[in-house]
C-alpha cells in the first residue's frame, strides 16, 4: 500500500476528518468566491475578509474528496492573517509543487524545491498527490479559487 500511504498521509486524513476554518463570514464585509470542479462535482466557497492588504480571516464551505478538503483546510491555516504578498507567494509555491516534471530535476532545482516545500510546512504533505495525475485538480481547486478571489478584490 506504499502508493496509498504517499497520498493519504496522516495529516491529510486529519484535516479531512477535522477541517479547519469551516463556515461562512457575513458578506459584506467579506468577499465570497466559488470554485467548481465540473469533472467530479467538487465545490468550494471561500469567504475572504481583507483589511489593508492583509487576509484577516477566511472561511470555507462546500464538499469534495479527502484531497480537496484537506488541501483547502491546510491552505486556510497557511494563509490566514498573511499579507497579500505572502498569500500570493504561498499560492505560487503550492502550484509549483503540483507541477509534474517530465524529466529529473537538476540539483539546483531540487534544492530549490526542497527549500520551498520547507517553507510550505504542513502543506508539503500534499506533494504525494503529484503521483496521481487525476487528483492534482482536487488539490489545486481551493488554491485556484483563492487566487480568483484575490483577483476579484484586485489584491
Amino acid at each position: 500500500m506504499s502508493n496509498l500511504d504517499d497520498l493519504y498521509r496522516e495529516i491529510i486524513l486529519d484535516h479531512y476528518r477535522s477541517p479547519r476554518n469551516r463556515g461562512q463570514l457575513a458578506t459584506p464585509p467579506a468577499h465570497r468566491v466559488e470554485g467548481f470542479n465540473p469533472l467530479c462535482g467538487d465545490e468550494i466557497t471561500i469567504d475572504l475578509l481583507v483589511d489593508d492588504g492583509v487576509l484577516v480571516d477566511l472561511k470555507l464551505s462546500g464538499q469534495g474528496c479527502s484531497i480537496s478538503q484537506a488541501s483547502s483546510s491546510l491552505m486556510s491555516v497557511a494563509v490566514k492573517g498573511k499579507s497579500r504578498d505572502d498569500v500570493r507567494h504561498a499560492i505560487a509555491s503550492f502550484k509549483e509543487m503540483m507541477l509534474r516534471h517530465e524529466s529529473a530535476l537538476s540539483d539546483d532545482e531540487s534544492k530549490n524545491q526542497v527549500a520551498r516545500l520547507r517553507e510550505l510546512g504542513e502543506i508539503a504533505a500534499l506533494q504525494g498527490v503529484v503521483k496521481f495525475p487525476v487528483r492534482i485538480k482536487c488539490a489545486t481547486l481551493a488554491w485556484n479559487t483563492l487566487a480568483q478571489g484575490l483577483d476579484e478584490l484586485a489584491l
Partner: peptide, 10 residues
C-alpha cells in the same frame, strides 16, 4: 464518510 474519488483511489 468516504468520497467516491477516495473510494475509487483505494
Amino acid at each position: 464518510g468516504v468520497h467516491a474519488h477516495d473510494v475509487a483511489q483505494v
